[in-house]
């Protein structure tokens, strides 16, 4: 449904996204996960034809975003980062205007409006001025705007930011219900959110895709191991191999640091390997300086993946 190939966008000297490629199947929900400034919004703005890419190509529902932007725009519902609302209008007035600019025929308008009010639970506030609505309701009006013409593709930029926990759950529920009939791309910086609603996650950092996987596998990757960080003054060439054969050790990463060599040892969950590793290091005379357990938080997925990416790029 969506096909993106080698997209790059530069703002002057700053490269916002670089060489981004991915595909989204029909009916799939895909999350863009990344820290602030990762390039999520930029990618979405390119896909919605708000701005052109510096290079690369993309197509939505079979239409090229550069050659046939009108066709693409007709098939996309887009909820930007800050919901684009006219605060002086009532909800109904606003959605009626939207239905006009999205080209919904007059005779279908009432029905489209009723459907979307119902779906986004806005029926009760439909006569109120948007400016007087709470943040959560405004976000829903924003979503209603994206949904009104029943588009094949939905692009939602951080649809749950600024909502309270109850509203977040409701919003996620609405998005989940969209799967199947609609193809959805949403962005978020919260991993659990991606896990909760999406079938596939793209982790993006500093404009590059660093991982594409299902949420299950991503979190599995997270939880399957403990990490122990060892700093050794005088390691031997075979140290890494010696660490690897310790029972329970899965893998060993090695990197130099100012006060010795750092070994990141990845171990099985459940058992503390620190004592074992310490005695081994002392026994072999590797000059153990420091040994700590590394807590792998959700944020560390980004960090880990992005550091590896940077290292690869440097190599």
């Amino acid at each position: 449904m969506i096909h993106v190939q080698n997209l790059t966008k530069r703002y002057g000297d700053l490269t916002a996204i670089e060489d981004v490629s991915f595909d989204v199947q029909k009916g799939e929900i895909l999350a863009f996960l990344g820290p602030n400034g990762a390039g999520k919004t930029t990618t979405m703005r390119i896909l919605t034809c708000f701005m052109p890419a510096s290079s690369g190509s993309a197509s939505v529902a079979g239409f090229d975003i550069f050659d046939q932007p009108q066709e693409v725009k007709k098939r996309i519902g887009y909820l930007p980062e800050s919901p684009p609302l006219y605060t002086e209008m009532t909800v109904t007035e606003y959605l009626t205007f939207i239905s006009k600019i999205k080209g919904i025929e007059r005779r279908d308008r009432t029905q489209a409006l009723a459907r979307v009010l119902e779906r986004c639970a806005l029926t009760e506030v439909r006569r109120r001025l948007i400016g007087n609505l709470s943040r959560g309701y405004r976000q829903r009006v924003g979503l209603a705007q994206a949904l009104i013409h029943n588009p094949e593709v939905l692009i939602l930029d951080e649809p749950t930011t600024g909502l309270d926990p109850k509203q977040i759950i409701e919003m996620r529920q609405v998005i989940k219900e969209l799967a199947g009939q609609h193809t959805v791309i949403l962005s978020t910086h919260i991993l659990p959110e991606a896990t909760a609603v999406c079938q596939r996650v793209i982790i993006i950092h500093e404009g590059r895709i660093v991982a594409v996987d299902t949420p299950d596998r991503l979190s599995a990757q997270l939880r399957q191991s403990d990490k122990i960080r060892m700093t050794l003054k005088t390691p031997l060439p075979e140290t890494a191999d010696a660490l690897k054969i310790v029972p329970g050790v899965l893998s060993v990463f090695h990197e130099p640091s100012p006060d010795g060599q750092v070994f990141i040892v990845e171990c099985d969950l459940g058992r503390d390997h620190r004592a074992e590793l310490a005695s081994l290091a002392v026994h072999r005379g590797w000059g153990l300086v420091e040994l700590t357990a590394v807590k792998l938080s959700l944020e560390d997925v980004f960090l880990k993946l992005t550091q590896e990416e940077t290292k690869e790029a440097a190599a």
């Binding site: 708000f50 009108q70 684009p84 600019i101």
Partner: peptide
């Protein structure tokens, strides 16, 4: 300013 330009420019309005 209020970001509604993004809405207009991404809707099928020339």
């Amino acid at each position: 300013k209020i970001k509604t330009m993004e809405l207009l420019m991404t809707s099928p309005v020339p």
